[in-house]
Amino acid sequence: MFSRHVILRGALLATCACAAATAVRAQDLRGSVEGVVLSADGDRPVPDAAVGIVGLGSHVSSDSSGRFVLSGVKFGSQRVEVRAVGYQPSALAVTVVPGEVTRVELRLKSAVVNLPEVIVSSSREEQLASTTPVSVGVIRGDEIRETRGHHPAEIVNRTPGVYVSNFGGEGHATAIRQPITTKALYAYLEDGVPVRSTGFFNHNALYEINIPQAGRLEIIKGPGTAVYGSDAVGGVVNAFTRDPSPRPEAEVFLEGGSTTYLRGLGSASTTAGRSGFRTDVNVTRADGWRDGTPYSRQSGTLRWDYALGDRSRLKTVASLSHIDQPGDGGGDLTAEDYAGLPSRSYSPIAFRRVMAARLSTELQVVGESSSFGATLYSRYND
């Protein structure tokens, strides 16, 4: 009996030893792959890229500097594949040496990705443009920055069915699927916050928003009174501020022209931990080509996003616009002045001096099948 126990115990120990040795040998036959994912056109790191070994189905994500580590990779010839939104997929053949680190550099070429258009203005919640029951025109942020319009009309008029007139400076009136008018038919918003109270309509309200530096414009071409009140009987223009960037960035744009026209646009943004920050500044001035038509604008926007969790965040926006425009130089001229003094103005009556300030904080909570949002804001118009 004793000898049988000894034999069984010995066999069990031998089996465990063999299994351990096999596991050690298998572990010795594996290595790791470390590297960085960069853009092919500028050596910029590509964060959140999916990197894995072809055929295994599992992936890791590159960090904010584009770096990644694949551990426990079987030795021999392998192919490392990488995918990232906005880039063409790529793969690289590598040779993994047991117990060693194989270092690689993966470069991705940019690609155009057509994502479904998402809008917010029709119901105050994100939804696909293809599923919304109203007609909504969208002007993307890259279009706005490429246009860099001097007047809101140069940007907003890119939308079919929408026309904004130019009264000089930034004076204007809007027409959305109907004749142009100065009546209270449209609601003007910034991040969903009305720029003016109901009943205090201003047909020049677009110059109270920093349109050239907006992140996106959504224009409802039809009644929006159920969501935005009586001012939206003819349509809604909703300008969204730009999101903070995941990495530090800064932009400066300067231009000048005749009649001492000068404009400077500046922007800076970064993200640190749970907080994202962005600031935009617009300074514009011109003497005007007709008598009594100087114009100046100073606008600024500060935005702070704070992630409360994976599905909730706070967004705080402070914006300020000051416009000084003594006149627009409108009116007819006599034949003599038209021929000899075309810059003359008989009726510089379009005096405009505007101070518009807003401060808002929005709470957004997104669940599996529902969402919640609330906005507190303060507004000043003079």
Rank of each mutant, 00 (worst) to 15 (best):
346 Y>F: 15
320 L>I: 07
322 H>G: 01
324 D>L: 08
318 A>M: 07
305 D>G: 09
302 L>V: 05
306 Y>R: 12
306 Y>C: 05
348 P>D: 01
298 Q>R: 14
333 L>H: 01
328 D>E: 10
312 S>T: 11
321 S>C: 05
317 V>P: 00
325 Q>Y: 02
351 F>L: 13
309 G>W: 01
319 S>Q: 08
343 S>P: 00
345 S>A: 15
310 D>R: 11
316 T>W: 00
342 P>N: 11
309 G>Y: 04
308 L>G: 06
331 G>F: 10
330 G>T: 08
295 Y>N: 04
295 Y>E: 03
348 P>Y: 04
301 T>W: 00
313 R>G: 01
337 D>L: 14
350 A>K: 12
320 L>K: 00
335 A>W: 13
294 P>V: 08
314 L>I: 11
351 F>D: 14
293 T>F: 00
344 R>F: 14
294 P>G: 07
336 E>S: 14
333 L>F: 05
326 P>T: 06
345 S>I: 05
342 P>I: 02
332 D>F: 10
327 G>R: 02
292 G>M: 04
318 A>L: 12
308 L>E: 04
331 G>I: 12
338 Y>L: 14
299 S>P: 04
344 R>I: 02
349 I>D: 11
321 S>F: 00
326 P>W: 02
296 S>Y: 01
297 R>A: 05
309 G>T: 11
348 P>Q: 10
302 L>F: 09
317 V>W: 01
299 S>L: 00
346 Y>R: 10
305 D>T: 13
306 Y>S: 09
319 S>A: 14
297 R>L: 13
330 G>E: 02
313 R>F: 05
300 G>V: 06
347 S>D: 15
317 V>R: 02
316 T>V: 08
312 S>D: 06
307 A>R: 09
330 G>H: 07
307 A>V: 01
314 L>H: 04
300 G>M: 08
348 P>V: 13
344 R>D: 00
329 G>V: 06
307 A>M: 07
298 Q>H: 11
344 R>P: 03
313 R>E: 08
